[in-house]
Simulated scan of single mutants.
Amino acid sequence: MTMSPGYEIDFLPVGQDQDGDAIVLRWGYNEVNYTNNPLINQKVVIIDTGFSSDGEKIRTHINNYYFVNKVDLIIITHPDLDHIGGLKYILENMEVGELWIHRPLLHGAMVQVDDRRVTENSKTKRLIECKVKIEDAIKIAQSKNIIIKEPFQGLGFNDGNGFITVLAPTKEYYESLLPEFIGEKSSSNLMAEGLRNAVESIGEKIKKLVTSNKDEDDLNDDDTTSAVNKSSAIILFGCCGDYSFFTGDAGIETLDIAYQYLTSQFNYNLFLSMLKVFQIPHHGSKRNLGPTILNKLFSNVDNSHISAVVSCIKTSNTNVTLKHPHQAVINAFKRRNINVYPTKGLTIYHSKNMPSRKGWSTADSLDYKLEYFEE
Protein backbone atom coordinates (compact mmCIF):
# COMPACT_ATOMS: atom_id res chain seq x y z
CA MET A 1 0.00 0.00 0.00
CA THR A 2 1.38 3.41 -1.00
CA MET A 3 0.49 6.26 1.32
CA SER A 4 1.53 9.89 1.56
CA PRO A 5 0.74 12.60 4.12
CA GLY A 6 -1.69 15.25 2.94
CA TYR A 7 -3.96 18.02 4.17
CA GLU A 8 -7.05 20.00 3.22
CA ILE A 9 -8.22 23.47 4.29
CA ASP A 10 -11.77 24.75 3.73
CA PHE A 11 -12.88 28.35 4.27
CA LEU A 12 -16.66 27.98 4.55
CA PRO A 13 -19.18 30.58 3.35
CA VAL A 14 -20.91 31.45 6.63
CA GLY A 15 -23.24 34.31 7.45
CA GLN A 16 -26.16 35.60 5.41
CA ASP A 17 -26.30 39.39 5.72
CA GLN A 18 -23.19 39.71 7.92
CA ASP A 19 -19.63 38.50 7.43
CA GLY A 20 -18.56 35.51 9.51
CA ASP A 21 -15.63 33.12 9.87
CA ALA A 22 -15.49 29.33 9.87
CA ILE A 23 -12.47 27.31 8.73
CA VAL A 24 -12.13 23.53 8.85
CA LEU A 25 -9.02 21.54 8.06
CA ARG A 26 -7.66 18.02 8.33
CA TRP A 27 -4.45 16.12 7.79
CA GLY A 28 -3.28 12.52 7.80
CA TYR A 29 -2.09 9.74 5.49
CA ASN A 30 -3.88 9.34 2.20
CA GLU A 31 -4.12 6.14 0.18
CA VAL A 32 -3.57 6.59 -3.57
CA ASN A 33 -7.06 5.28 -4.36
CA TYR A 34 -8.68 7.02 -1.41
CA THR A 35 -12.46 7.57 -1.67
CA ASN A 36 -15.14 8.27 0.95
CA ASN A 37 -13.03 7.35 3.96
CA PRO A 38 -11.21 9.27 6.66
CA LEU A 39 -7.48 9.66 6.24
CA ILE A 40 -5.28 7.27 8.19
CA ASN A 41 -4.35 8.93 11.51
CA GLN A 42 -6.67 11.78 10.52
CA LYS A 43 -6.85 14.96 12.61
CA VAL A 44 -9.69 17.45 12.16
CA VAL A 45 -9.56 21.07 13.36
CA ILE A 46 -12.18 23.84 13.32
CA ILE A 47 -11.06 27.48 13.56
CA ASP A 48 -14.13 29.60 14.40
CA THR A 49 -17.72 28.52 13.93
CA GLY A 50 -19.62 31.34 12.22
CA PHE A 51 -23.08 32.34 13.46
CA SER A 52 -25.56 30.21 15.41
CA SER A 53 -27.16 29.07 12.16
CA ASP A 54 -23.80 27.85 10.79
CA GLY A 55 -23.07 25.04 13.25
CA GLU A 56 -25.06 22.50 11.27
CA LYS A 57 -23.41 23.62 8.02
CA ILE A 58 -19.96 23.02 9.52
CA ARG A 59 -20.93 19.59 10.79
CA THR A 60 -22.42 18.62 7.42
CA HIS A 61 -19.24 19.66 5.62
CA ILE A 62 -17.09 17.55 7.92
CA ASN A 63 -19.46 14.60 7.58
CA ASN A 64 -19.55 14.84 3.78
CA TYR A 65 -15.88 15.59 3.01
CA TYR A 66 -13.90 14.33 6.01
CA PHE A 67 -16.23 11.33 6.60
CA VAL A 68 -16.33 11.58 10.40
CA ASN A 69 -18.42 13.17 13.12
CA LYS A 70 -15.35 13.82 15.26
CA VAL A 71 -13.33 17.01 15.72
CA ASP A 72 -9.96 16.75 17.43
CA LEU A 73 -9.65 20.47 18.15
CA ILE A 74 -11.89 23.55 18.02
CA ILE A 75 -10.26 26.99 18.25
CA ILE A 76 -12.35 30.12 18.85
CA THR A 77 -10.10 33.05 17.94
CA HIS A 78 -12.25 35.54 19.88
CA PRO A 79 -15.85 35.66 21.15
CA ASP A 80 -17.59 37.83 18.55
CA LEU A 81 -20.90 36.29 17.52
CA ASP A 82 -19.77 35.71 13.92
CA HIS A 83 -16.94 33.49 15.21
CA ILE A 84 -18.44 31.71 18.22
CA GLY A 85 -22.07 31.38 17.10
CA GLY A 86 -22.04 27.77 15.87
CA LEU A 87 -19.94 26.41 18.74
CA LYS A 88 -22.83 25.26 20.94
CA TYR A 89 -24.35 23.18 18.14
CA ILE A 90 -21.03 21.53 17.32
CA LEU A 91 -20.25 20.71 20.95
CA GLU A 92 -23.71 19.17 21.36
CA ASN A 93 -23.77 17.23 18.10
CA MET A 94 -20.18 16.12 17.44
CA GLU A 95 -17.45 14.28 19.29
CA VAL A 96 -14.83 16.87 20.30
CA GLY A 97 -11.37 16.30 21.77
CA GLU A 98 -10.16 19.79 22.76
CA LEU A 99 -11.62 23.30 22.89
CA TRP A 100 -9.31 26.33 22.83
CA ILE A 101 -11.15 29.46 23.91
CA HIS A 102 -10.24 32.56 25.91
CA ARG A 103 -12.02 32.77 29.26
CA PRO A 104 -12.06 36.44 30.30
CA LEU A 105 -13.71 35.68 33.64
CA LEU A 106 -10.53 33.90 34.74
CA HIS A 107 -8.51 37.09 34.28
CA GLY A 108 -10.11 39.56 36.66
CA ALA A 109 -13.37 41.08 37.85
CA MET A 110 -12.96 43.99 35.45
CA VAL A 111 -14.55 41.94 32.68
CA GLN A 112 -17.73 41.09 34.58
CA VAL A 113 -20.21 42.48 32.09
CA ASP A 114 -23.76 43.14 33.24
CA ASP A 115 -26.24 45.94 32.72
CA ARG A 116 -26.08 47.11 36.37
CA ARG A 117 -22.45 48.20 35.99
CA VAL A 118 -22.21 49.61 32.50
CA THR A 119 -24.35 51.86 30.36
CA GLU A 120 -26.34 49.93 27.79
CA ASN A 121 -25.21 50.43 24.22
CA SER A 122 -24.63 48.16 21.26
CA LYS A 123 -21.11 47.35 22.42
CA THR A 124 -22.08 46.12 25.88
CA LYS A 125 -25.07 44.22 24.55
CA ARG A 126 -22.77 42.37 22.18
CA LEU A 127 -20.31 41.59 24.95
CA ILE A 128 -23.08 40.28 27.21
CA GLU A 129 -24.16 37.93 24.41
CA CYS A 130 -20.56 36.84 23.89
CA LYS A 131 -20.11 36.20 27.61
CA VAL A 132 -23.18 33.97 27.59
CA LYS A 133 -21.87 32.08 24.54
CA ILE A 134 -18.54 31.45 26.28
CA GLU A 135 -20.15 30.27 29.50
CA ASP A 136 -22.61 28.00 27.68
CA ALA A 137 -19.76 26.43 25.69
CA ILE A 138 -17.64 25.87 28.80
CA LYS A 139 -20.51 24.14 30.60
CA ILE A 140 -21.17 21.82 27.65
CA ALA A 141 -17.48 21.05 27.21
CA GLN A 142 -17.04 20.30 30.90
CA SER A 143 -20.10 18.03 30.93
CA LYS A 144 -18.60 16.03 28.03
CA ASN A 145 -15.06 15.92 29.52
CA ILE A 146 -13.66 17.94 26.61
CA ILE A 147 -10.19 19.35 27.31
CA ILE A 148 -10.36 23.16 27.61
CA LYS A 149 -7.34 25.43 27.07
CA GLU A 150 -6.81 29.13 26.44
CA PRO A 151 -5.06 29.93 23.13
CA PHE A 152 -2.08 31.99 24.21
CA GLN A 153 1.27 32.23 22.45
CA GLY A 154 3.18 28.94 22.35
CA LEU A 155 0.24 26.59 22.91
CA GLY A 156 0.52 23.69 20.47
CA PHE A 157 -1.17 20.59 19.07
CA ASN A 158 1.18 18.17 17.30
CA ASP A 159 0.81 14.54 16.20
CA GLY A 160 4.10 14.27 14.32
CA ASN A 161 2.51 14.70 10.89
CA GLY A 162 0.99 18.14 11.27
CA PHE A 163 0.88 20.80 13.95
CA ILE A 164 -1.06 23.79 15.22
CA THR A 165 0.71 26.59 17.12
CA VAL A 166 -0.69 29.78 18.66
CA LEU A 167 1.46 32.74 17.60
CA ALA A 168 -0.46 35.47 19.46
CA PRO A 169 -1.67 36.94 21.73
CA THR A 170 0.52 36.54 24.77
CA LYS A 171 -1.35 36.21 28.04
CA GLU A 172 0.04 39.57 29.14
CA TYR A 173 -1.16 41.37 26.00
CA TYR A 174 -4.59 39.74 26.26
CA GLU A 175 -4.97 40.89 29.87
CA SER A 176 -3.89 44.42 28.91
CA LEU A 177 -6.84 44.56 26.49
CA LEU A 178 -9.50 43.43 28.94
CA PRO A 179 -10.26 46.86 30.47
CA GLU A 180 -11.20 48.02 26.96
CA PHE A 181 -13.64 45.14 26.43
CA ILE A 182 -16.31 47.07 28.29
CA GLY A 183 -17.07 50.75 28.66
CA GLU A 184 -18.96 53.44 26.92
CA LYS A 185 -18.22 54.71 23.47
CA SER A 186 -16.52 58.07 23.58
CA SER A 187 -18.72 61.12 23.06
CA SER A 188 -16.94 61.86 19.79
CA ASN A 189 -17.64 58.34 18.54
CA LEU A 190 -21.27 58.64 19.57
CA MET A 191 -21.60 61.96 17.76
CA ALA A 192 -19.96 60.53 14.64
CA GLU A 193 -22.24 57.51 14.75
CA GLY A 194 -25.31 59.69 15.17
CA LEU A 195 -24.31 61.87 12.23
CA ARG A 196 -23.59 58.82 10.07
CA ASN A 197 -26.95 57.26 10.94
CA ALA A 198 -28.74 60.53 10.16
CA VAL A 199 -27.06 60.76 6.77
CA GLU A 200 -27.80 57.15 5.92
CA SER A 201 -31.42 57.48 7.04
CA ILE A 202 -32.08 59.95 4.24
CA GLY A 203 -30.25 57.84 1.71
CA GLU A 204 -27.32 60.18 1.26
CA LYS A 205 -24.33 57.92 1.81
CA ILE A 206 -21.24 59.95 1.17
CA LYS A 207 -18.68 58.29 -1.07
CA LYS A 208 -15.37 59.53 -2.36
CA LEU A 209 -13.39 58.42 -5.35
CA VAL A 210 -9.95 57.09 -4.44
CA THR A 211 -7.20 56.98 -7.04
CA SER A 212 -4.65 54.38 -5.99
CA ASN A 213 -0.90 54.81 -6.32
CA LYS A 214 0.65 51.54 -7.42
CA ASP A 215 3.80 52.36 -5.46
CA GLU A 216 2.01 53.01 -2.14
CA ASP A 217 -0.69 51.38 -0.02
CA ASP A 218 -3.94 53.24 0.61
CA LEU A 219 -3.60 52.15 4.24
CA ASN A 220 -2.05 53.57 7.39
CA ASP A 221 -0.41 52.04 10.43
CA ASP A 222 -3.11 53.12 12.91
CA ASP A 223 -4.45 50.06 14.73
CA THR A 224 -8.07 51.20 15.13
CA THR A 225 -9.86 47.86 15.43
CA SER A 226 -11.58 46.99 18.73
CA ALA A 227 -9.90 45.44 21.77
CA VAL A 228 -12.00 42.31 21.32
CA ASN A 229 -10.68 41.95 17.77
CA LYS A 230 -7.12 42.61 18.94
CA SER A 231 -7.49 39.69 21.35
CA SER A 232 -7.89 37.27 18.43
CA ALA A 233 -5.76 34.15 18.51
CA ILE A 234 -3.43 33.96 15.51
CA ILE A 235 -2.87 30.35 14.45
CA LEU A 236 -0.09 28.69 12.46
CA PHE A 237 -0.76 25.34 10.77
CA GLY A 238 2.10 23.28 9.40
CA CYS A 239 1.96 20.05 7.39
CA CYS A 240 3.82 18.44 4.47
CA GLY A 241 6.41 21.23 4.37
CA ASP A 242 3.72 23.93 4.00
CA TYR A 243 2.52 26.62 6.40
CA SER A 244 -0.84 28.37 6.71
CA PHE A 245 -1.58 31.46 8.78
CA PHE A 246 -5.02 32.19 10.32
CA THR A 247 -5.75 35.58 11.86
CA GLY A 248 -9.37 35.87 13.07
CA ASP A 249 -10.07 39.61 13.42
CA ALA A 250 -6.58 40.47 14.70
CA GLY A 251 -5.25 44.01 14.51
CA ILE A 252 -1.83 45.36 13.65
CA GLU A 253 -0.44 45.02 17.19
CA THR A 254 -1.45 41.37 17.45
CA LEU A 255 -0.06 40.61 14.01
CA ASP A 256 3.23 42.20 15.03
CA ILE A 257 3.37 40.04 18.17
CA ALA A 258 2.85 37.00 15.94
CA TYR A 259 5.56 38.19 13.55
CA GLN A 260 8.07 38.71 16.38
CA TYR A 261 7.36 35.21 17.70
CA LEU A 262 7.76 33.69 14.23
CA THR A 263 11.12 35.36 13.72
CA SER A 264 12.28 34.00 17.09
CA GLN A 265 11.31 30.46 16.13
CA PHE A 266 12.07 30.25 12.38
CA ASN A 267 14.39 31.47 9.68
CA TYR A 268 11.70 33.87 8.48
CA ASN A 269 12.76 34.01 4.82
CA LEU A 270 12.64 30.22 4.71
CA PHE A 271 9.30 30.22 6.50
CA LEU A 272 7.89 32.74 4.03
CA SER A 273 8.99 30.61 1.09
CA MET A 274 6.88 27.76 2.57
CA LEU A 275 3.81 29.85 3.40
CA LYS A 276 0.87 28.84 1.20
CA VAL A 277 -2.30 30.30 2.77
CA PHE A 278 -2.81 33.58 4.63
CA GLN A 279 -6.19 34.57 6.05
CA ILE A 280 -6.78 38.31 5.70
CA PRO A 281 -8.00 39.51 9.11
CA HIS A 282 -11.46 40.84 9.88
CA HIS A 283 -13.01 40.02 6.50
CA GLY A 284 -10.65 42.41 4.73
CA SER A 285 -11.26 45.49 6.87
CA LYS A 286 -9.04 48.51 6.26
CA ARG A 287 -8.66 48.97 10.04
CA ASN A 288 -6.62 45.81 10.66
CA LEU A 289 -3.64 46.15 8.34
CA GLY A 290 -1.01 48.75 7.55
CA PRO A 291 2.02 49.09 5.28
CA THR A 292 4.59 48.40 8.01
CA ILE A 293 3.17 45.07 9.17
CA LEU A 294 2.51 43.98 5.57
CA ASN A 295 6.11 44.77 4.64
CA LYS A 296 7.31 42.69 7.59
CA LEU A 297 5.05 39.74 6.88
CA PHE A 298 5.63 39.67 3.12
CA SER A 299 9.24 40.83 2.79
CA ASN A 300 10.07 38.60 -0.19
CA VAL A 301 9.93 40.06 -3.68
CA ASP A 302 8.13 37.00 -5.02
CA ASN A 303 5.09 35.98 -2.97
CA SER A 304 3.16 34.41 -5.83
CA HIS A 305 3.03 31.03 -4.06
CA ILE A 306 0.86 32.55 -1.31
CA SER A 307 -2.95 32.66 -1.53
CA ALA A 308 -4.71 35.25 0.63
CA VAL A 309 -8.26 34.25 1.59
CA VAL A 310 -10.94 36.57 2.93
CA SER A 311 -14.23 35.46 4.49
CA CYS A 312 -17.00 37.78 3.32
CA ILE A 313 -20.62 37.51 2.29
CA LYS A 314 -22.38 37.61 -1.04
CA THR A 315 -25.94 38.82 -0.69
CA SER A 316 -28.83 39.89 -2.88
CA ASN A 317 -30.31 41.94 -0.03
CA THR A 318 -30.22 45.53 -1.29
CA ASN A 319 -30.46 46.82 2.29
CA VAL A 320 -27.08 45.31 3.16
CA THR A 321 -23.96 47.37 2.47
CA LEU A 322 -21.05 45.19 1.37
CA LYS A 323 -18.11 46.79 3.22
CA HIS A 324 -15.66 43.91 2.94
CA PRO A 325 -13.14 43.28 1.62
CA HIS A 326 -11.94 46.85 1.30
CA GLN A 327 -10.37 47.55 -2.09
CA ALA A 328 -7.34 49.17 -0.42
CA VAL A 329 -6.63 45.83 1.28
CA ILE A 330 -7.04 43.90 -1.97
CA ASN A 331 -4.69 46.32 -3.70
CA ALA A 332 -2.12 46.00 -0.90
CA PHE A 333 -1.93 42.23 -1.37
CA LYS A 334 -1.90 42.46 -5.16
CA ARG A 335 0.99 44.95 -4.92
CA ARG A 336 2.90 42.24 -3.07
CA ASN A 337 2.16 39.70 -5.80
CA ILE A 338 -0.40 37.81 -3.70
CA ASN A 339 -3.78 36.80 -5.12
CA VAL A 340 -6.87 37.40 -2.97
CA TYR A 341 -9.71 34.86 -2.93
CA PRO A 342 -13.07 35.79 -1.30
CA THR A 343 -15.59 33.23 -0.06
CA LYS A 344 -18.63 35.28 -1.22
CA GLY A 345 -21.03 32.35 -0.93
CA LEU A 346 -18.47 29.70 -1.95
CA THR A 347 -16.07 27.41 -0.12
CA ILE A 348 -12.43 28.31 -0.78
CA TYR A 349 -10.44 25.07 -0.75
CA HIS A 350 -6.70 24.45 -0.57
CA SER A 351 -4.98 21.06 -0.36
CA LYS A 352 -1.77 19.11 -0.83
CA ASN A 353 -1.43 15.42 -1.73
CA MET A 354 -5.20 14.99 -1.78
CA PRO A 355 -7.51 13.85 -4.59
CA SER A 356 -9.46 16.54 -6.43
CA ARG A 357 -13.10 17.01 -5.52
CA LYS A 358 -15.44 16.10 -8.32
CA GLY A 359 -17.25 19.11 -9.74
CA TRP A 360 -15.08 21.68 -7.95
CA SER A 361 -13.42 24.37 -10.08
CA THR A 362 -10.58 26.85 -9.76
CA ALA A 363 -11.41 29.92 -7.65
CA ASP A 364 -11.34 33.41 -9.13
CA SER A 365 -9.12 36.02 -7.49
CA LEU A 366 -10.03 39.67 -6.97
CA ASP A 367 -8.63 42.39 -9.22
CA TYR A 368 -6.43 45.36 -8.42
CA LYS A 369 -8.37 48.59 -9.03
CA LEU A 370 -6.67 51.87 -9.77
CA GLU A 371 -9.83 53.77 -8.85
CA TYR A 372 -12.57 52.84 -6.40
CA PHE A 373 -15.21 54.46 -4.22
CA GLU A 374 -15.19 54.31 -0.43
CA GLU A 375 -17.51 55.73 2.22
Score class of each variant (00 low, 15 high):
S187D: 15
E216S: 07
Q142I: 10
H305I: 07
V32K: 15
Y341R: 05
Q42A: 10
D302V: 08
L195Y: 12
C239Q: 02
F246T: 03
Y34L: 13
V277T: 15
L73I: 07
R59Y: 05
L270Y: 06
P281Y: 09
I280G: 05
N303P: 05
E31M: 02
S53D: 13
Y368M: 06
G160P: 06
E95H: 03
I202C: 04
L370I: 10
I128T: 08
I76F: 04
G251N: 09
V340I: 12
K286T: 08
E135V: 09
N121Y: 04
V96T: 05
I257Q: 14
N339Q: 13
G86M: 05
D215C: 00
C240H: 00
V118I: 14
P38A: 08
Y341N: 07
P281D: 09
L195I: 14
I23R: 12
S361Y: 11
I74L: 06
K286S: 13
E95M: 05
G162H: 07
V320G: 03
I148P: 08
D222S: 13
G251D: 10
A192R: 13
M110V: 15
S232C: 11
M94V: 04
W27P: 01
N93I: 11
S176K: 14
K133N: 14
D80Y: 12
K133Q: 14
L209I: 03
K123N: 07
N269Y: 08
T292V: 10
A308W: 11
V96G: 02
H83P: 00
G156K: 15
E193Y: 04
N229P: 01
D215A: 10
I206K: 12
I74V: 11
Q18T: 13
L155A: 14
I58Y: 04
Y261K: 14
F373G: 00
I62L: 06
R103T: 14
R357G: 01
R196S: 11
E375V: 03
L177R: 04
